[in-house]
Design a protein around this nucleic acid. Sequence first.
DNA 1: GCAATTGTTGGGAG
DNA 2: GCTCCCAACAATTG
Length: 258
Amino acid sequence: MPELPDVEGFRRALAERLPGRRIRHVHVCDAGILRNASARSFARRLVGRRFAQPRRHGKWLILPTDGPVILVHSGMTGHPHYAPSTEAREDHERLVLTLDRGEFRYADQRKLRGVWIAADDQVSAVTGPLGPDALTVDRATFADILGARRGKLKPALMDQALLAGLGNLLSDEICWQARVNPLCPIADLEPADVGHLYSRMRQVLRTSVRHGRVPGLRRWLTGVRDAMDPACPRCGTPLQRGRNQGRGTLWCPRCQAP
DNA sequence: GCAATTGTTGGGAG
DNA sequence: GCTCCCAACAATTG
């Protein structure tokens, strides 16, 4: 399910357990999950290392050690987590690092992304270009990013190289709350629209991070988007469905008139 | 069987 | 170069 809020939840949970733990043993249950190393070299480079404080940039979870850095991208179904050694494994557990106390585990049903290893100064070579993190970007930078972009709003919000962390659900939610059409050309936005987008983005992200995921609140678009014939939670108008970059897009034709 | 799903990537079109 | 769209990746669900 991961978008930024999920990954931030993973990070916070790991931050309480991982720092200082030493890696004793590496068990790669499914080598397909390792994207830039063999199971053998992955293990060789990590055994004996000690975890430091986990970080996050957009949807990337960054797990530094006193040696290399482990990079996790959860795709749609990945779940990095800490567990006591005695705790039963989840389904689709792909990687288990036995620590001096407990285990770091990575479970992932679909394996759309996975796990990378890199030297500390090679992180961006793995992640590729990333814009500022959506949770901490300031208002002026946000406006500058949109101002420099030519096309439609939603593809820009979802472009990780522009702004890191927003996915399909969050982008729709933010546009709806800001009452801006997701397919609107950015050039047509008023300065006030950009301001609303920024404010709603902050609010949506804060609330979502508090929930550890994008919540399906009744007064949010997320609360109705899986309904058969969803209506706008604000005005009751039947919502409109579209397709954008192969993903479902949902908006209110009245509140978000193009 | 078909379509859809909250992730990214690469190729190709305009 | 920028922007956008599709197919692909994989597994499951309606």
